[in-house]
């Protein structure tokens, strides 16, 4: 792959890769850094990219792996609550009920999901990918994707229903 092909195929994926990264690391700055790091790695290995059939799926899979590695090793570099920290510091249902901004409440609910469920929800409901594509990106069977997708959505539904009931009381 030459520079022109790289610019026309890989660089336009930046927004999508950023969203995927952000859904995993839950931090704008870290997600942006991850995109830049991935672009640098893909550029270094651009000669190998010609062999890849689905570049979008490959880039998203690489992004997820990079972010998972980031969560394991470098999240302390960013002074933000992430993943487990986010869950620990998340407001309790009573506090959540008091939040006027329903949009932020829903975003927090999604961020509270386990990483895999969060990623699957994002790839399906935000990026609109097929189950088979999500399976390729996450290296998990399609059945496991469906199960995790269902669990994630059920959790969101339960939380939303509970909140609605409490507000009516």
């Amino acid at each position: 792959m030459d520079a022109a092909q790289f610019n026309s195929v890989i660089l336009p994926l930046a927004d999508q890769l950023f969203r995927v990264a952000k859904s995993i690391v839950c931090n704008d700055e870290a997600a942006k850094d991850a995109v830049q790091e991935l672009n640098a790695k893909l550029w270094e290995n651009r000669s190998q990219l010609d062999k890849v059939q689905n570049l979008t799926a490959f880039a998203m899979k690489s992004m997820r792996n990079l972010c998972l590695d980031w969560l394991r090793t470098r999240k302390s570099d960013y002074d933000v609550p992430l993943d487990e920290n986010l869950i620990a510091s998340a407001p309790n249902p009573h506090q959540l009920m008091e939040q006027k901004d329903l949009t932020n409440y829903v975003k927090q609910l999604i961020d509270k999901l386990p990483e895999l469920q969060r990623t699957i929800i994002h790839l399906r409901d935000v990026e609109g990918l097929e189950i088979s594509e999500i399976a390729a990106i996450t290296s998990i069977s399609e059945n496991a994707i469906s199960v995790n997708l269902s669990r994630a959505r059920q959790k969101l539904r339960t939380e939303l229903m509970e909140k609605s009931k409490k507000e009516k009381i």
Binding site: D15, V106, I110
Partner: peptide, 10 residues
Amino acid sequence: VFDEKAKEKI
């Protein structure tokens, strides 16, 4: 929220 996230740019 899904719609909003889909519009997000780097």
